[in-house]
Design a protein around this nucleic acid. Structure first.
Lengths: 402, 402
DNA sequence: CTTCTTAGTTCAAGACGTGATTGAACTCTC
DNA sequence: GAGAGTTCAATCACGTCTTGAACTAAGAAG
């Protein structure tokens, strides 16, 4: 109930420390002078804070840079060897576990385990996660309790209890299930949101003030992350974009409503539409990714009009769905991600942009750029890894005991 | 560019002052002890801050309240006589100017001037506003330059330049136009957002963490306001809800797209639908409010099936539009306001709630309450008046010169 | 070698919040 | 009805913070 903003003079220091550390982490600043200018703090304070950060091993001096005829600036950089984090991506068909240093450089190849997550009870999912974490850390010669944190991206809503309709999870205390095995509580949150944060820090949403990250796959999730103006910390929330109605009398969606966007741009919906128009065998639910990839390939080669038509329609639906988002939340960046997003982007992006230009309100779309995600297939695991790092940055790099 | 969060120990004080003042203003706390508990500050600090606030005339002691066998608590209350604010509602057909004390109690009847705001140039609108402000303040024996601030709600997006499609405004520097006449810059922002803030403070959205306020009229605007968790300040933004597509192949909207929600639930759209089904004379564009009121009356009396059917459809469209919002931003409160909202609420609310129950995702709608606005016909002017007050609270009650 | 320029540190001063202590105001019980 | 108990509020010494100014460090230019 009591507000967690800084109250005492001591909190003030932690706040400033967090500010400085975050700027260094995001590489907005590389020396003490920059930091002073950007943060509005005095050079004296920067000096104090930076020496604390160096003493704690979070930051290091890394050579120097000559300045126009004066003492050279000593370059400051976050030290990758401060510690490691793990990112876990819980998908519908697999669990992917990545190990990164805390600057988000991968340290080992991801551990990927095929698991029908929706068909086994949550506590077994938790066990699988623990064993994969043990495997990936062992392979890198680290013990799990030496980690700075573990982040977990789920296809649902975050909090202490997880609701994830696609997994059939309702009020699952995932963090609690993992706490005992890890020795500390992991950071669990929506995968799209986590991915959005990763794109914000290192990917296609760098510099955006209000970015929407869309996760296209079998479903269509989304997350809005706002840097919240010059004052506040970044703030994100999840959007069930796939379950917004774009056709009052459209087909029935698995959520029960009619005409949800997902029934038009979900991977299975696209394949079903193709099967219907091309007269080919109806899609049987297996190997969605491969089928969609083939469909896109055919359309690109322009050998098959039916494939092209299906993708044209998809572009229209996508564009309308994105236009709705633009009119509602006025993002300055829209990132298309997820495995289906990656497949569709090359072929569809120009068409989608055109549809948006026709549908979204001009004064809103004017500032909106629509871009493909830049973070590749393990993007969501990387995104999940940002969760504990974000907490670390917000705390100014405080370890548990300090 | 430099972040405006508190850096120096002095900013810390202003921050705490703002916190305390806001709690008193919103009547979350009524005495020093409450304040200490709620804010997390020590009793000593509360004591200091409160005496500052009293010395500055922002807060007064107002009797006392017996405590369980001890010294009675002295009741603290924000002093209405600290100053006045003006709220201006720029509608499509009229300008309404209200004078309030800074606790938002009306001081004089609103000045209302019928102005076809879309048909005269912005600088004339500005002149009209200035003369109405002069009139309403003169009537209360106040001079405009003694005001704490002036807030202006526009049907569009805020900032230093206003975009308001319904008025045909594009990049109008309204604040600049008014600055010279007022002697200070007014706070200009979206009307729905301002209204949302008012409902948040004094109306149907009290206590909500994430409230969506919908402004129903000829168009359909919306605003999302978040209290942003325990740490941050409230944060709001505008949504062009009326221009989200709910029917891919629906009728063409004035924005150019097809199947916008506005073409189903806009007041004129409802009347057009009625004219079409009842075979009565097509709506001629004049006296929208009266026509809609009559339609609702007929439906309620159940004398005319056509009227009832039109409203049933309207409830369905409204419900779907609201469900989309719930799935996207997961509000815990949805407020239906605006003149059309007021007319429709009594008749439609149960039906709307039912539609939402069927369409929105269960785990999201579970926490969402849909309520009519509580603030009456001058709600938007009142909302506009919250704009300068919000700034005052955020500054801890700092006047310009301090 | 001296002077200039820029980067970073040190130090005293001013401001803040806190806990402990004290004072104030009222109720309850004997 | 007087003292004990209780609750509210103000005061003060202390530790911590940021800041501006003075100062040191380190290289460039002349």
């Amino acid at each position: 109930m009591t507000s967690r903003a800084q109250k005492t003079t001591r909190d003030l220091r932690w706040h400033n420390r967090s500010d400085v550390l975050t700027r260094l982490y995001l590489r907005e600043c590389t020396n003490r002078n920059d930091l002073a200018r950007a943060s509005g703090l005095s050079a004296a304070t920067i000096s104090n804070v930076v020496s604390d950060l160096i003493a704690d091993g979070l930051v290091g001096e890394n050579g120097s840079q000559s300045s126009a005829g004066g003492r050279p600036r000593s370059l400051l950089r976050v030290r990758p060897d401060f510690g490691h984090v793990v990112g876990v991506d819980i998908g519908e068909t697999e669990i992917r576990v990545g190990l990164f240093d805390w600057t988000l450089q991968p340290v080992a190849d991801d551990e990927v385990r095929a698991v029908a997550t929706a068909q086994i009870p949550p506590h077994e999912v938790a066990d699988q996660i623990l064993s994969e974490i043990a495997a990936v850390t062992a392979r890198a010669g680290i013990t799990p309790d030496g980690l700075l944190g573990v982040g977990i991206g789920v296809p649902g809503a975050g909090g202490s209890v997880i609701h994830a309709p696609t997994l059939g999870w309702s009020a699952v205390p995932l963090a609690g299930l993992l706490r005992a095995g890890l020795g500390f509580a992991p950071d669990v949150d929506n995968g799209a949101m986590a991915l959005g944060q990763a794109e914000n820090w290192r990917g296609a949403a760098r510099g955006a003030e209000r970015a929407v990250t869309l996760l296209l796959g079998i479903g269509a999730g989304g997350a809005l992350s706002m840097t919240a103006g010059p004052a506040g910390r970044a703030r994100s929330f999840t959007m069930e974009w796939g379950h917004t109605v774009v056709d009052l009398d459209g087909p029935t969606c698995r959520c029960g409503a009619r005409g949800c966007l997902e029934t038009y741009i979900g991977a299975e919906a696209i394949l079903a539409r193709y099967a219907a128009t091309s007269g080919s065998a109806p899609f049987d639910g297996d190997g969605v990714e491969a089928h969609l990839a083939e469909l896109v390939a055919r359309a690109v080669k322009q050998q098959e009009p039916a494939a092209g038509a299906v993708l044209d329609d998809t572009a229209r639906y996508l564009g309308i769905g994105i236009s709705n988002l633009i009119n509602l939340v006025a993002p300055d960046r829209v990132i298309l991600s997820g495995w289906a997003g990656a497949l569709l982007c090359d072929a569809l992006l120009p068409a989608v942009r055109l549809v948006v230009r026709q549908h979204a309100l001009p004064y809103l779309q004017e500032f909106t750029r629509i871009e493909p995600g830049e973070l590749g297939p393990s993007a969501t695991a990387l995104g999940a890894a940002t969760l504990p790092v974000a907490r670390l940055l917000a705390d100014g790099g405080r370890r548990g005991d300090e």
